[in-house]
């Protein structure tokens, strides 16, 4: 029996390594190829000039003004979207928990709605809305932040809702109120510090999603990082591949950091098995849909 189990275990191990190796090659090859593509010249020599240029911000801005503008607007969009998302979502989620518990289902439904509406569909309906936005606020790329807030809603909501589930918001708020705190103080000094890691998760996810967004920006003729990369691909393939690679690495670093951010405060509740939920937007999404009905 023991021998049998050992043999089965060995066979399992071999199988596992084969799977990991084959798929590992499949996944790493394009990434390696990206790097090679950026450092290899047609004559077979190697050069790091692309990367040197990418690291030299001033010159990069002069050589590729569109790319520079795209980077700037994506950075701005990330900041604004995080801010709007937090200002919209956190107080609303707390308020609904405290004062309007009957609305929780409704809030959840609304927040998860964007999952069933593909971005390409949303953009069709957003076009007339953005005609008005342009009329009132001008055509700056930063106005995309409203649409992006909608896009990140499901992921951000899941993260924040999980954070709120882990603490007893009602008791905390009542305790603070009975000690004379106003609602603003309750929010800022009592609730927020207690859901710090959830807020952090939601913000990281938002940044990652905003930096990767292409569909809406491209079809509303606004400029962001991904649109700039796509445009650059037509003129300077090497640079566009280099920026793509840098963006992928940056996103990886963000999500990797995020996987640690969720750890500090041990959350309870079934929504975050091993904090995996915090790592991935799609997992949060999948859980969210599963728990909806």
């Amino acid at each position: 029996m023991a021998g049998l189990i050992a043999r089965a275990a060995r066979r399992q191990r071999v199988m596992r390594w084969i799977v990991v190796l084959v798929l590992g090659v499949f996944f790493l090859l394009p990434l390696v190829a990206m790097v090679m593509f950026t450092i290899r010249e047609p004559n077979g020599h190697y050069t790091f000039s692309t990367w040197r240029l990418l690291a030299n911000w001033k010159q990069l801005g002069q050589t590729y003004p569109d790319l520079w503008a795209g980077m700037k607007s994506s950075a701005g969009l990330a900041v604004f979207t995080v801010l709007i998302m937090l200002v919209m979502l956190v107080p609303t989620a707390v308020w609904v928990r405290l004062r309007l518990p009957k609305m929780r289902r409704f809030l959840e439904f609304v927040c998860l709605l964007p999952l069933t509406i593909p971005a390409i569909v949303l953009v069709v309906g957003l076009a007339p809305v953005y005609a008005w936005v342009t009329y009132f606020l001008g055509g700056s790329a930063l106005t995309l932040t409203f649409a992006y807030t909608i896009l990140v809603l499901p992921y951000a909501y899941r993260a924040i809702d999980a954070g709120l589930s882990a603490i007893d918001v009602r008791t905390l708020a009542e305790a603070a109120r009975s000690l004379g705190a106003g609602w603003a103080t309750v929010m800022w000094r009592v609730v927020l510090p207690n859901i710090r890691s959830a807020v952090l998760s939601a913000s990281f996810l938002t940044v990652a999603l905003v930096l990767g967004e292409f569909t809406i920006a491209s079809l509303l003729n606004r400029e962001n990082l991904q649109v700039a990369i796509d445009l650059l691909g037509k003129s300077s393939a090497t640079m566009s591949v280099a920026v793509s690679f840098a963006a992928l690495v940056l996103a990886f670093a963000l999500l990797f950091l995020l996987s640690f951010a969720g750890r500090r405060r041990g959350r309870r509740g079934a929504t975050t098995p091993d904090q995996l939920g915090a790592v991935s937007p799609s997992l949060i999404a999948s859980e969210a849909i599963g728990e909806r009905s």
Binding site: F27, L29, P30, L31, A33, M34, M36, F37, T38, A208, L209, L211, G212, F214, T215, Q226, I229, D230, G233, A237, S240, V241, S244, F245, A247, L248, A251, F252, L255, V279, S280, P281, S282
Partner: peptide
């Protein structure tokens, strides 16, 4: 996996063009 699954889009297209 999170990056490749969600961030993808344009960057992955370029990854395959480079490959």
């Amino acid at each position: 996996c999170g990056v490749l699954a969600q961030f993808g889009g344009v960057t992955l297209a370029f990854a395959f063009i480079a490959t």
